[in-house]
Structures are given as structure tokens and as C-alpha cells.
């Protein structure tokens, strides 16, 4: 059973990205390069946020809270989690912007490398690929340990929703986040180029909201924490995808 569920989690979490990679990315050289380099950028951003965490840990001593059960400690823990996620989201978006800067410089070369140098869709290809890089890397870093642990004997249940195994919830969240990263990249790159502050803000806020929503899986104090988290994630995904595709069709018409 352990192995079967392991496979299921693996496919739920990484299935979409693997499919996209094999069917779409691996066919063109420059997209592969983009995926690798954007993954590298995301990695830098997460390393920086882990440095924040390391420093904060030295100051606040989170580790001591691990085994404490009082209400105060519980709220402290939640607050620390929120703090980390805000900082981390900020860093990630910063690096998305930096990567866009880099991409902007290399765009002429990348354009010329592609099959149709003058196609207006090239930009979308590039932003899609870099979003995939961000998403895949974040998925790998966040979920791989949990996935590996799910092979061990025993089932771990989710805190917020004690009837579901935690790796399963985590797999769903991961796959949603991979898709979200793709859509965010498409919107953000487009918005950076046209300097649409509203959309940039939406990407940032959406990321923040999604990240904070996952904290809901942590507790049973709030009823229906898990479903609410998923509702929030899916609605963000839906709305963001809607925006992205609206732009996309506009470009196609023009």
C-alpha cells in the first residue's frame, strides 16, 4: 500500500509538470535552458529566505516551541509561519522580477533561437517556461521530503483534516502551486513589460494569499480549514488563469 500511495502522490504532485515538460518543453532547446535557469533563480530566492529563517531562528529560537503545547506558543508558531511566508513570497517575487530583467536582456537572442523569431507568442512561451521552472523547483524542494517519507511505514494524517493523509493534501497543494507559478509568471512578465501595477500587485497578493492559506492545513481549531484552503487556492488559480488567457487571446486577435 505504501508504494502504491507513494506513486499516486508522486503523480498527483508532479504529473502536470512532468507532462508539460515532456510534451512541450523538452522539444526546444531554449525552453529547457529557460527552465533550468529559472529554477536556479527560484532556488536562490528560497535559499535567501532560508537565511532569513536561520537568522530569525537565532533571535527568536523557534526550535524551542516545537514541543510546547500552550495556546501562546501555538499562536506564536502561527505568527512565525506567517512571517516566514510573507518574507519568502516577497523574495520570490523579487527574483521573478530579476529573472524577467535577465530574460528581457536575452530576449533578442532567445527570439532568434526559436523556430519563429517574429512570433508575438514567443514571449508567452518564455514566460510559461520560466514559470514552469519556478513551479517545478518549488514543488521539488517543498514536497520531495514529504513524498520520500510517505514510503515509510505508517500513515500521517493532516492536522486540519484528520481523515486525510497529509502527503495527499500536500500533493494536491503542490500540483496547484506548480500551475499557479506558471500563470503568475505569464501575468507578471506581461505586467512588468507594460508596467501594469495592478496586475503586479495581484500576482504578489495572490501569491501571499495562497501561501498563507496553506497555513490553514496546520490547525484543527478552525473548522473546515482544509477545504477553505483548497477553495482559496483553486479560486486564485481560476481567476489568475482567466486573466492570463484573456491577455493571450487578445494577443492572438491582434
Amino acid at each position: 500500500m505504501g508504494f502504491v500511495s507513494y506513486l499516486a502522490y508522486l503523480l498527483i504532485a508532479y504529473g502536470p509538470s512532468i507532462t508539460i515538460f515532456i510534451l512541450y518543453i523538452s522539444r526546444s532547446a531554449q525552453l529547457v535552458i529557460l527552465v533550468v535557469s529559472s529554477a536556479f533563480f527560484w532556488l536562490i530566492s528560497i535559499l535567501i529566505s532560508s537565511i532569513y529563517w536561520f537568522i530569525a531562528n537565532l533571535v527568536f529560537k523557534y526550535e524551542k516551541l516545537e514541543n510546547a503545547n500552550s495556546d501562546k506558543d501555538y499562536y506564536k508558531r502561527i505568527i512565525y509561519l506567517m512571517l516566514i511566508s510573507v518574507l519568502s513570497v516577497f523574495t520570490q517575487e523579487l527574483f521573478r522580477w530579476l529573472f524577467w530583467k535577465l530574460l528581457n536582456k536575452a530576449e533578442a537572442g532567445l527570439n532568434a533561437m526559436s523556430e519563429k523569431p517574429k512570433s508575438p507568442l514567443n514571449k508567452y512561451h518564455f514566460s510559461f517556461a520560466s514559470g514552469l521552472g519556478f513551479g517545478v523547483m518549488s514543488g521539488l524542494v517543498s514536497y520531495s521530503t514529504v513524498l520520500a517519507d510517505s514510503l515509510k511505514p505508517g500513515t500521517i494524517l493532516c492536522g486540519a483534516c484528520p481523515t486525510m493523509p497529509m502527503p495527499f493534501i500536500a500533493a494536491l497543494i503542490t500540483s496547484i502551486f506548480v500551475l499557479l507559478h506558471i500563470v503568475w509568471s505569464i501575468i507578471a512578465f506581461n505586467a512588468f513589460e507594460k508596467k501594469e501595477k495592478l496586475l503586479i500587485a495581484w500576482v504578489f497578493i495572490g501569491h501571499l494569499m495562497a501561501s498563507l492559506a496553506t497555513i490553514l492545513t496546520y490547525t484543527d481549531r478552525m473548522k473546515f480549514g482544509c477545504p477553505i484552503c483548497f477553495v482559496i487556492l483553486v479560486s486564485i488559480l481560476g481567476y489568475t488563469t482567466y486573466i492570463a488567457f484573456k491577455r493571450f487571446t487578445k494577443i492572438k486577435m491582434a
Binding site: 528560497i46 529566505s49 516545537e66 514541543n67 503545547n69 506558543d73 501555538y74 509561519l81 516566514i84 511566508s85 519568502s88 513570497v89 520570490q92 518549488s138 517543498s142 514536497y143 521530503t145 514529504v146 517519507d149 505508517g154 500521517i156 494524517l157 493532516c158 492536522g159 486540519a160 484528520p162 497529509m166 493534501i169 500536500a170 497543494i173 503542490t174 502551486f177 495562497a210 501561501s211 496553506t214 497555513i215 492545513t217 496546520y218 490547525t219 484543527d220 481549531r221
Partner: peptide, 28 residues
């Protein structure tokens, strides 16, 4: 936050988790 249970596998005492410390998956 996956709890470490390996050390206590024998008596299974730590397998049941306190919800406050329960498992979660926070995605950055």
C-alpha cells in the same frame, strides 16, 4: 512538520499527535 516516530516505534506512544503540533504543509 512530520513528527519523528521512528525512535518510539516500539510502544507507538508518540504516533498520536497533538493537533496543536500536528502535521501540516505550508507552501511558500
Amino acid at each position: 512538520r512530520i513528527p519523528v516516530v521512528e525512535n518510539n516505534m516500539k510502544n507507538y506512544s508518540d504516533l498520536k499527535l497533538d493537533y496543536n503540533n500536528g502535521c501540516s504543509f505550508v507552501y511558500l
